[in-house]
Design a protein around this nucleic acid. Sequence first.
DNA 1: CTACATCCTCCAGTCACTGGAGGATCAAGC
DNA 2: GCTTGATCCTCCAGTGACTGGAGGATGTAG
Lengths: 134, 134
Amino acid sequence: MSKTLMIGDLASATGTKVNTIRFYEETGLMRRADRTASGRRTYDFEDLKRLRFIRRARRLGFETKEIRSLLALSDRPEAPCEEVTDIALGHLTDIEAKIAQLIRLRDELNRMIRLCAGGSISQCQILEQLAESS
Amino acid sequence: MSKTLMIGDLASATGTKVNTIRFYEETGLMRRADRTASGRRTYDFEDLKRLRFIRRARRLGFETKEIRSLLALSDRPEAPCEEVTDIALGHLTDIEAKIAQLIRLRDELNRMIRLCAGGSISQCQILEQLAESS
DNA sequence: CTACATCCTCCAGTCACTGGAGGATCAAGC
DNA sequence: GCTTGATCCTCCAGTGACTGGAGGATGTAG
């Protein structure tokens, strides 16, 4: 058998904290790992692949709920690819909304900062702007 | 006196949940409100102004720690405006980094979605990409 | 007098981890 | 065989910024 991997191996291979891997097991993202006689978790390369998938999806900003769906889908190879695309498209929409929002914030902050001509707090335009009833 | 405002008035005037205002009191963003004989919080227009300031800064994405600093600064009218500008500039840098990061994610997601030619899960390029060791 | 709204305190839950206490096990070197 | 240090285990508390609800008191309008 190829159950040669310990939790620390998975951690260093994926840049995940050991505690985080245990957390993924607890919350069902990773299956419950088999244990040695002394109770240590053992993993094989399938587990490593799964963890890599999870971490990569997390880096792309998918929520665990979405990752759970994606993982469930990848277990049904005959299912239509559409469901995956839908999840990805929904996520894309979220990201685009966030970008638009942040750009608005950036512009407003920039505007506020440019107004500041130095001087003392009592004349500070940034605080002034924040204090105004929106 | 002008302590005519109850917590619900502040809530509806600022679009804040009542529980959130209590939370701000608990965590020291808002001062501990005076109480009526029966224990209800009373507020004046100064409190309302402060809450508006907090909410506006939160909408602009400032953390409570930063807001605490800004509020402390606005109590020192003779202090130099520079400290405020520094907080705002630091925040601006954070926002710009976040925007750049999100744009990278968006492009990568877009790329993955475009690769998907339909068909079944087993050929899904999105899952494929996620499964690849990065 | 009776609804019903609003208020109170206290506590648990959200999300995705992170960090640490306290203790067991393992591998390597002497 | 013994020590040392790394790694592992379980369990629990904390993060940030709230949100929601239970269970009960108070206020107000008709």
